[in-house]
C-alpha cells in the first residue's frame, strides 16, 4: 500500500513537472494529451478484449458518455468557488477531478448495465451488441437540443437544479458542445495513464486477474472450476468503461468541442486496432501501439512535409495494418510485457 501511494505521488509530481515544462507549446501539449487519451482507452479496452478474452467494439460509446457527463459537471461547477480562498488553478483542477470522477462513474455504471445482460452472449454477438449500444448513444445525443445562451441565462437564475436539467437535455446535437472549460493539462492526462496501467497490473496480479485470464483461456473450464464467469466479465467491463469515461472527460476538457460523431463506431474500431497491433493481452503493447499509431499521421506529415500526402495517409494506414498483421500476427508484443523483460533473463526456462 505504501509503495503504491509513494509511486502515485512520484508519478503525479513527474507529470506536474512535465506539464509545467511543456505548457507553452500548444502543439506538443495537444499531441501528448491526445496520445495519453489513446493510451488510457487502449489499456482499458485491453482489459476486456485482451485479458478477459471478450470482444467489445463499443468503447467509443463509453468514452462519449464520460465526455458528455464530464462536461455537464464541469460547466455546472465552474461557476462556483469550490474552495474559498484557494487560487483559481487549484479550484479548476478540483472541478476537473470531480468531472473526471462523474464522467468515469457514469460510463462505468453504463458499462455495468450494458454488460449485465449482454455478457451472457458470446464472442461476435457481444461485439455487435456493444457496437449497437455505442450507436444508440450517438443517436440519443443527436436528438437533444442546442444550448442557447439567452435561455441558459434564464435557467441559471432558477438555480442549479434547473440548470442541470437544462444542460442534460441540451447536449448540442450534431453541432456538439463547445465552450468547454479547458481544464485538462497534459500532466493530468499522463497521471491517469499511470493510474490505468497500475490498476491493470494490480488486477492481473490478483486472484481476480487470474479468474479473468482463466475466462480468456477457456470459459467452460473456468466455470467448471467455480469461477463466476458472468460476474467477473461484468466487473471487468465496468472497470474498463470507467476508464473509458475518464478518458472521454479528459479529452473533452482539452478539445474545445465534442460532437457525437467523435465517439462513433470508427473511434471504437481505432481502439481495437491499437490493442491488436500492440498484442492482445499485453498492457505495454497497448501503450506503445496507441502512442505510435496516434502519432503516425503526424509523423507522416513530418516526413512528407514537402509533398501533399494528405490524401494518401488513410489508405496507407490501412495497408500498413494489413502488413503488420501478416508479418507479426501476435501484435508487437504478443502477450509479453515490457516490465517482464528483466525477469525472464534471470530465469531461463
Amino acid at each position: 500500500m505504501l509503495r503504491t501511494t509513494s509511486t502515485l505521488v512520484v508519478a503525479g509530481a513527474a507529470c506536474a513537472l512535465a506539464s509545467w515544462l511543456f505548457a507553452s507549446s500548444q502543439f506538443f501539449a495537444l499531441q501528448a494529451s491526445l496520445v495519453g487519451v489513446a493510451v488510457i482507452l487502449a489499456v482499458s479496452l485491453n482489459l476486456i478484449n485482451g485479458i478477459t478474452g471478450q470482444f467489445s467494439i463499443g468503447h467509443g460509446g463509453f468514452m462519449g458518455v464520460g465526455a458528455y457527463v464530464g462536461v455537464v459537471t464541469s460547466s455546472l461547477l465552474t461557476q462556483f468557488q469550490l474552495l474559498p480562498g484557494a487560487p483559481q488553478v487549484v479550484s479548476d483542477q478540483l472541478v476537473l477531478l470531480i468531472a473526471l470522477a462523474t464522467g468515469g462513474l457514469a460510463a462505468g455504471t453504463m458499462g455495468f448495465l450494458v454488460g449485465l445482460p449482454s455478457l451472457r452472449l458470446k464472442g461476435d454477438y457481444l461485439a455487435i451488441v456493444t457496437l449497437g449500444f455505442g450507436e444508440i448513444i450517438r443517436v440519443a445525443i443527436q436528438n437533444t437540443k442546442e444550448i442557447a445562451s439567452d435561455e441558459l441565462k434564464l435557467v441559471q437564475a432558477q438555480g442549479i437544479g434547473a440548470e442541470l436539467a437544462y444542460r442534460v437535455t441540451h447536449l448540442g446535437r450534431a453541432t456538439g458542445l463547445s465552450q468547454i472549460p479547458q481544464l485538462t493539462s497534459f500532466g493530468m492526462v499522463w497521471f491517469w495513464v499511470f493510474v490505468v496501467v497500475m490498476v491493470t497490473r494490480r488486477i492481473l496480479g490478483s486472484p481476480h486477474g487470474r479468474a479473468l485470464l482463466a475466462i480468456r483461456e477457456d470459459e467452460v473450464a473456468a466455470e467448471a472450476m467455480g469461477v463466476d464467469t458472468t460476474g467477473y466479465k461484468v466487473r471487468a467491463f465496468a472497470v474498463a468503461s470507467f476508464f473509458a469515461g475518464v478518458a472521454g472527460a479528459l479529452f473533452a476538457h482539452f478539445q474545445a468541442i465534442i460532437t457525437p460523431a467523435q465517439f462513433d463506431f470508427v473511434k471504437s474500431t481505432e481502439i481495437v486496432v491499437f490493442i491488436v497491433a500492440g498484442g492482445l493481452g499485453s498492457t505495454s503493447g497497448a501503450v506503445v501501439s496507441a502512442m505510435a499509431l496516434t502519432l503516425l499521421p503526424e509523423v507522416m506529415r513530418s516526413l512528407f512535409g514537402g509533398f501533399n500526402v494528405e490524401q494518401i495517409r488513410k489508405p496507407l494506414f490501412g495497408l500498413l495494418l494489413v502488413v503488420i498483421m501478416l508479418t507479426r500476427p501476435q501484435g508487437l508484443f504478443g502477450t509479453h510485457e515490457l516490465w517482464d523483460l528483466g525477469k525472464r533473463k534471470k530465469r531461463p526456462a
Binding site: 506503445v288 503516425l296 513530418s302 516526413l303
Partner: peptide
Amino acid sequence: AAFAALSLITLGCE
C-alpha cells in the same frame, strides 16, 4: 520494436 515505436513518437513531435 519498442525502440522503433518510441523513435516514431519523437519524430511525431518534431
